[in-house]
Structures are given as C-alpha cells and as structure tokens.
Simulated assay, not measured.
Amino acid sequence: MTQLNLVVIRTNRQDDQVRFYTTLGLTFNHHRHGNGPYHYSAIIGGLTFEIYPLPATEHEPDTTTRLGFTIESLNATLQCLEEMGIETVQAPASTEWGYAAVVKDPDGRRVELIEKLIK
C-alpha cells in the first residue's frame, strides 16, 4: 500500500507561512536534523508537513504546488485569514466534497479549504 507521508514547502517567509498554516489548525515544532537548516514541522494524521527556508541559491518560492486541507469551520477560518490579508481566489461554495474555498498562502500557493460534510 502506498501512502503519502511527507510534504515540504520552501519559503523566504517562514513566520508568515507558520501563522497561515497554524490558522488552518496545524501545530508546528521548530527544529533541525543534524547540520540542516532550522525548519517547522507539523504532523497531520500520518503525514509530516514541513516548512523549510529557501536554499541560498533560490530567490523565489515555487507557487505551482496546490495543497488541500479539510478544516472544522470554513467561514471562521476565512474570516481569520482575511484579517491577515490573505487573498481568497475562489469564494466559498457547496461542492460534492463539502463546503469549499480556495485561498493563496503568503507565497501565492493555492490552498483548497474544505469544511467536511456531516453525514
């Protein structure tokens, strides 16, 4: 059985990214492995989500990766993100997967937020 267990994003705005993803409900630890860079790490189920600094040879983070998170309350989360200046690129709407919206994280990655349907 194949299972995704690690997602790493790289940024030159670590604090902003941690604040954004913490608003989605993630809890981060700040640490490093050996002589590697300090970074932030959160566990979501069996997945490790990490926020690393950009390597010195890169100047702009990759914004082509799209992420998706199931959250408790879409409207409350969107209100908090709006107060942080986060852009909503797809307004909340009911879909077959749940009540959903798309926002951009501080680097510009599109992040789909879905409030899980209660059955």
Rank of each mutant, 00 (worst) to 15 (best):
R110T: 09
L81N: 11
E96M: 07
P92K: 12
V89G: 07
Q3V: 02
F49E: 14
L74D: 01
Y99G: 04
T88N: 07
T70F: 05
Q14L: 14
I86K: 11
A76I: 04
E115D: 11
N29H: 08
P106H: 06
F49D: 14
E83A: 12
E96G: 03
E87P: 01
D62M: 04
P37S: 05
H33P: 00
H30D: 13
V7M: 10
A100S: 15
R109V: 01
K104P: 08
C80P: 01
H59E: 14
E83W: 04
Y38W: 13
T48D: 15
F49I: 09
P92H: 12
K104F: 06
R10N: 05
R13H: 10
T63M: 04
T11C: 08
R32A: 12
G85Y: 06
K116P: 03
T63D: 03
L26Y: 02
K116M: 15
P55C: 08
H39Y: 09
A42D: 12
G108R: 00
V102G: 04
Q17N: 12
P55I: 07
I114M: 08
L6N: 12
Q90F: 00
Y99L: 11
I71D: 14
Y38N: 15
E50I: 07
E82V: 00
F28Y: 11
I71P: 09
S41E: 15
F28E: 13
S94R: 13
G34N: 11
G85K: 06
D16S: 09
N29M: 14
T64M: 08
K119C: 06
F20H: 04
E96S: 01
K119V: 03
S94V: 10
V102I: 15
G46Y: 06
M1Q: 09
A42Y: 00
L74K: 00
T57W: 03
N5W: 01
